[in-house]
Structure formats: C-alpha cells, structure tokens
Design a binder for these strands. Structure first.
Lengths: 353, 353
DNA sequence: GACTGGCACTCTCTCCACCGGAGTGCCAGT
DNA sequence: ACTGGCACTCCGGTGGAGAGAGTGCCAGTC
C-alpha cells in the first residue's frame, strides 16, 4: 500500500468519486449505485459501481450515513476532489460585471470592504466574510487629530493604500485646536510613508531623547502620537448573509440552525482562523476537519488574501456547509479578491504619482 | 352596548384576563379553564370560568387556536393588559447596575449606542434595537475637514451632545491642508451651536450674497460646507441579538424562523416604524396588529425615545414575539433610555460650562 | 479476471389508524 | 349565580405495515 494512495486511484475510481461529489453537491442526498449507473456516464452496472464505491469507502473518500443509504463524500473526499478533480467554472459575465461595478464605483475602499461581504454573500448564497486585521505594517499617508471633548481626541489615519481609519483616544493632556493641527502636520510630515509599527518605535525612541530637553510641545506631540499608534484599532470582521444558511438542507432543523447561528456569532474564533490563513498566499480552501472551527460545525471556508502583493490587508471569503459548489465559489472569491487588490494598488500608485 | 367596552369589564373578568395573559406569557401554551381554576386565584369552578372566558372571547380579548384548545390573548387582549392590568416589575439591582456601568463607563456616546442594542438584547433576551436617525436638528460643537485623497474630504462633526459623526465627501475643488484647517476653523467659529439645518440654510443664503464678490476662498468654504451638510448621514439602525429568537417556541419551526430572520433583515421597514415612533414621547408599546410590520410577523415592539428633552436623538427598544414579558421589558427599555438621555444631557451641560 | 444479475437483508420514511388527554359547550340541578 | 356532568372535538403521540432505496455477497458469464 503506497503512502499517498490518492495519487494512484485508477481513472475509473477518480471519475466515480468526481461524479458522486458533483451529484451530492447538487442534490444533498446520499448517492447510491443505481442512481450513479443511471446517470449515463458509466457503462457499468450498479453492482460494479458498488465495488468501486466500496473501495473508495475503504480509502476514506466516501462514507455511509447508515447501513443502507447511498454514499456521501468525506472531508478527505472533498479534499481530493478540490485538489485533483474539480474543474472551476468560470464566472458568468453578470457576476463579473456586478463585482467590477461594486468595486469600481465606490470611492472609499472602506466602503467597498463594507459592502464586499454582503455582495459575496448574495453572489455565492453563502455567508460572506471580510476580515481586516489590525495591521501594524500599515504605511500611512497622513495622520490628523480632532478634539472631540476636553481629553478625547479623534485620530484619523489615512493609509498609503487609501484606507481611512479613525479612533477616539483618551489623553492625559489637554489640547487646543491649534496644537492639534500643529501636531498633525508635524507627524504627517515626519512619518508619512512609514508603517505604524515603525512610527511607534521611533516615537518611543524620541521619548527618551526628549526627556532632557523639557520641550513641552514636543512632549505633548510624542505622547499623543504614541497614544494614537497604540490605540487598539480593532480587527474588523464582517459576517454577512447569515440568513443564507436558512435555505440549506443540512441546517434545516431548528437545532442545527441554532448551533450554526451561534457559531457564526463567535467572531473571535473566526478571526483566529482568518488570521492564520492570512499568512498563506493564493486561494485557500478549508474543508471540515481541516481546522477546529470548521470541523465542529461542518463548515468549509473559501478565502483569499487581498491587498497589495507586498502587504496583504486582509481576507475575503465565504463560509458555508461542506457541501458547497467549490467549483463556483473558488473563482468567485478569487475574482473579488483580485479586484480589491487591484483597486488598492491603483490607490497606492495614484499616491506616488 | 357601550362604545368602549373595555372600560366596563367587571373586576372578575379583568382578573381572569390578567391571569390568562400572565400564564400564557409564562408558558406559551393556551390556557384552559381547568388550569385556571387550579391556580388558586379564583374560587370558581372550571365551568364558571368557561363562561367568563367565553365572554372575553366574544369581546375580542381572547381567541382559541382550535376548537378544543385553551385560550390565548389576542392583540386586543394584550393591549388591554398593557393599558390597564399590567404591574411593571421593577428592575433588579443587577440589571440596574449593568446598565449604569455600561452607560457610565464608556467615554463616547457613539460607543454606548453601539453597545446598547446588544446590552438590551442580553438583558431582555429579545432582539435589541437602537436607531439613530439623520438629524438635521443636530446642533454642532465643531466641524473639521481632513483630506483623504485629492477630491475626497473626510468631514468630522461633533455635536453639542457629544455625538461624533464622520463622513467622506466628494468635492469639486482641490484643497490643501492649510485651506482645510482654515475652513474648519471658520465654520466652527461661525456656526457652533447651530443645527445642521440652520447651517445649511445660512450657507445657501451666503452663496447668493458672495457670488458677486469673487472671493475664491470664501466660495470654496461655502461649497465644502454645503457638501458636508448635505452629505447623507445615514440612518443608523443596530439590530442585535437576532439569535435570541432561536429559543422562542413561537419560532421553533424552520419556516417561521426563516421568515422572522428575513423580516429583521429588512431594515427600511424598521426604520420607517421607528421614525414614526420618534414623534411620540414616553415609552411606547406596539402590539401585533398595531402596525403593518408588527402585524405581519406577530412582533411586538417596546421602545422609547432618548436624547435631551428638547431634541430627541433616536430610539432604543426591543422587538420580539407578541408573547413577551411586557412587565419586565417596559421598565428595562425605560431605564436604559433614561440613562442614555441623562448621559447626553450631562455632555451638553459640560459643553456649556 | 472483470463484470453482471439476482437475492436476501437492512434501514429509513411515510402513511394511517388508534387512543388518551385536554378542553369546550350546553344543560340540568342546587 | 354557580356547579357537576356529559357528549363532543381536536391535537399529539405511538406503533405497525409497507414501500423504497441501497447494500453485500454469490454464482454465473464473457
């Protein structure tokens, strides 16, 4: 027995597996040998197909819900299908248009990201995900401060990629409007183009250098700058279209609906997962048991990084039951993430020019 | 037959109705004469109670799901209960503490409002609502502008009530950083304390007056000001805790769950409804048929205005099945809305001082 | 040796009949 | 005015029968 049995599945077995996965994705019901025989793709009797299916079950690609039901794919079956058997459907022109328009028209990247999750959800009929992590490798174009109340300052950071982030911070000092403008101008002039992380380190170094000089204004500037950079820019995770799971037969009973909704509520777990995915390049597909979270809830995730090549900004993707149309989801997520990335890179070049 | 039959319900019938509503709210099951007789509050036999119940049914306060079931309250029954029979439970100290802390601790009103809906949802075990309409009667403390890209300016408006609103607007002119600072300072100095609506009208008047003078800077100022005020500050509606309906027996089957989730998704309808409620002062309770939206979905809404007395800022409340603990929901919503209002008024006074 | 038909078996799902429980309305009696 | 009794209705659960779908295995065929 070879170490990687999936690579020497004979062509017929591959075809059978492929057909079972396709039909199961389509119908949601276990596939029996008779059904398979009647579909016309094989010139084999049910009995022969039973033998093939029995082999596939032994290899762990198929499983039976109960003794006398047809077979359904296992996680491993899906995985093999995705890696070796799937033929990605190309996007329809309509889908392409919808995405291009949504991404192209909106002026703010923030806005696009806000909408992207529900767009994705609509197009895929799954739950759309958009994740924007706290990025300390976020290069800034400008930083400004606006007084909101005596000791509360709103800090607005514009990134070189056009993303705008704002956050109210609590400060120790009081600031006049003039001071805030001055500080904003100073920090922007001094640090534009640097990442938040580097700015932070540099400011901290400056604290030490300045301590001797007793320059009150400089102290306030540094203090505010550090506060701004340290302020927890929260992860943002949009989970949109949870209602789409209401239609899925796998969640048709009230109990699993309940479980599933609650699972999608647990954003921390999803954030952890997406943060891990963020390290990898290219389209990623996680099936069931391939992560703790997806295993527990029988989810699959199709996601891809977006952002300029050098500095990924976040993840877009979909989450849904393991039985999903991978062949359609893959290009969809892929295309959207590329469209977003293109938009972001345009923004950056626009900035340099 | 009197025009308002509910006012001359004899005391015994009132007590029976009250008991039926209470028990039905508690159990969710239709109440029969036997159950009622056994509860001990009436020294009557089931047969006598049947007569009373039959009367109440004729008057439209009770209904039978089917011939041989007990009775459940109708919309009208709930209404009578709420108006004349309900004894509001006072909040537990724990509930009071949780609300006080949540409202007191958070520094930003925005933040409080963000959290208020999920707080309310948790405390009530219903769906929490927080609505913040576009308010043209929004008095400002300051207005500032920050360049985000060449023709895109982020406008940050701080209200006298401490609410911070920000929005990116598309402009016709290009602005330097200096110009933006100048404009912000000018508008803040000139218009602080006025409502957005008055600012808009004044700016429009100024357009006409200035047209002759050819002051480029002034033109840009007015143009940007008008853009900022006209920019659609969207209604914000937070609908939190939709998962709480998963537990309610009235939505236990998949079909009604589906309908209910989709209904809560239709935010426009909810916004319309809450906007209407905004006109009324004090705690409002809408039961089933009392509005189109609640009728279709068998919802009830308990909501109350918040904001300073003179200028209501929005609505907080809960939405859930008609069978809800009105006696607990009413004081809960009431207390939260008062806490929010207090917070907002503090903020305003703090500003004047 | 690969494929096929046949057969006995298993498991689920649906339909239907049945019955108990709960509740009602009505009536006669106190 | 209230009560007990009685016949009736309707819901919900239970249990068995039977159909349908699928399997495994075996013996037979090319």
């Amino acid at each position: 027995m070879p170490t990687r049995p999936e690579f020497d599945l004979d062509p017929r077995a591959r075809e059978v597996l492929r057909e079972i996965v396709l039909q199961y994705i389509d119908s949601g019901e276990a596939i029996g040998s008779r059904t398979l025989s009647k579909c016309g793709k094989f010139q084999l009797s049910p009995a022969s197909l039973r033998n093939v299916m029995s082999d596939l079950e032994e290899l762990g690609f198929l499983a039976q819900p109960h003794t006398s039901a047809g077979r359904i794919p296992t996680d491993r079956g899906y995985r093999f299908f995705i890696n070796h058997l799937m033929k990605s459907r190309s996007l329809s022109t309509r889908e392409r248009e919808v995405i291009d328009e949504e991404v192209g028209v909106a002026s703010e990247i923030d806005e696009v990201l806000h909408h992207a999750s529900s767009l994705l959800s609509k197009l895929s009929d799954q739950v759309g995900l958009v994740f924007m992590p706290t990025l300390l490798q976020f290069a800034i174009r400008s930083m400004d401060f606006i007084g909101v109340a005596d000791s509360r300052i709103m800090c607005v950071i514009v990134g070189t990629n056009g993303v705008v982030v704002n956050k109210v911070i609590e400060t120790r000092f009081m600031f006049t409007r003039d001071e805030l403008e001055k500080i904003g101008r100073y920090i922007t002039a001094e640090f534009a183009g640097l990442t938040l992380d580097r700015i932070r380190r540099r400011l901290i170094r400056m604290t030490e250098e300045e301590r001797a000089q007793h320059d009150a204004m400089m102290q306030k500037t540094i203090s505010l700058g550090i506060d701004a950079v340290n302020a927890p820019f929260e992860h943002e995770l949009y989970v949109e279209g949870a209602t789409s799971i209401l239609n899925k037969p796998e969640y048709s009973d009230a109990a699993s609906l309940r479980k599933t909704f609650l699972a999608l509520q647990e954003k921390e777990k999803l954030v952890d997962l997406l943060e891990m995915c963020l390290r990898e390049e290219g389209l990623q597909i996680l099936v069931g048991s391939e992560s703790d979270f997806t295993q527990v809830h029988n989810f699959s995730i199709v996601a891809r990084r977006y952002g300029s090549g050098s500095a990924p900004l976040g993840m877009v993707g979909i989450i849904g039951p393991m039985r999903m149309e991978y062949a359609r989801m893959a290009p969809l997520v892929d295309y959207l993430s590329r469209a977003l990335s293109r938009k972001i890179e345009e923004e950056e070049h626009h900035d340099h020019g």
